[in-house]
Amino acid sequence: MTTPVIELCEVSRRHDDGPPAVDDVSLTVRPGEAVAILGPSGSGKSTLLNLIAGLDRPDSGTVTVDGVRVDRLGEAASALYRRSKIGMVFQFFNLLDDLTVADNVVLPARLAGTARAEADRRAAELLEDLGIDRHAGAYPGRLSGGERQRVAVARALMNRPPLLLADEPTGALDTAAGQDVSRLLRDLHAEGQTIVLVTHDLALARSCTRRTVRIGDGRITEDVDSRAAAEAAR
């Protein structure tokens, strides 16, 4: 059986004295899967994503990503883990406005110690694949929202991570740009990229993934693989 890319076992996380943001969650994601985590604001989906990314640490349970026990990592090791194991795409892009598009994309590789020439080749390849190579020398502020999100995806893929995490990637985009990013995520999944998408948008989830995990009050309430369900119904 294929080793999971993500394996959460009985994970809980409580903030301050309130109820758990994540409450005894177990979740497995296998290589090549595209999974949407759905839920309203305050349901725990962003906390769950932060636990997978090593940006937060559980109070109990274990978080394993691509063979790494993320819940055991210190600050420096967590930063190294994020550079090598995951790519992250955010709602508001998080690009550096004083760097060109190409330099934004190259940055993760340079932080990882990749030689400049090799990093430049990889960045040029990604920008061409994503259809934004003509903007390599431009600054992010001159690009449309959809183009900036493509730059963010290129940056996230720079170090060839086994896992791509997308947190409301179309939330700041108009309808046309959102559909553009949705197609991009579908294409990446078709190429074998493992993706976890956090969203409240059911249409985006259905467009980009075949498996949806619903979370409410910190607990998984539903986990449905549409392809498996369709095959079972035959």
Rank of each mutant, 00 (worst) to 15 (best):
H135D: 01
R210L: 02
A112V: 07
E191D: 15
E191F: 03
I215C: 13
A190S: 14
A176I: 10
I220F: 05
T170D: 00
R116F: 07
G178I: 09
G113N: 11
L202V: 15
L204R: 14
L204M: 12
L111K: 07
A205Q: 09
H200W: 08
L157R: 05
A109D: 03
A205E: 12
G137D: 11
E125Y: 01
D167Q: 10
A203L: 09
A119L: 14
R122S: 09
A117P: 02
Q179P: 00
L185W: 04
A109V: 08
R183K: 10
R122H: 13
I195F: 00
G141R: 06
P162S: 07
R121W: 02
D167W: 07
G192Q: 12
L185A: 05
R186C: 13
A156P: 05
A152N: 04
T114A: 12
T209Q: 09
R155M: 13
R121M: 03
A205W: 07
A115F: 05
P140R: 05
R186H: 03
H200C: 10
T114W: 06
L184D: 01
T209M: 08
I220Q: 03
I220H: 03
V213P: 06
S207P: 00
R122I: 04
R210Q: 08
Q149D: 13
G178R: 01
T194E: 04
D167K: 04
G137T: 05
E168W: 12
A203D: 14
Y139L: 09
A152T: 06
R160P: 01
G171E: 06
R211F: 00
E128C: 05
G141D: 07
G145H: 01
D187M: 14
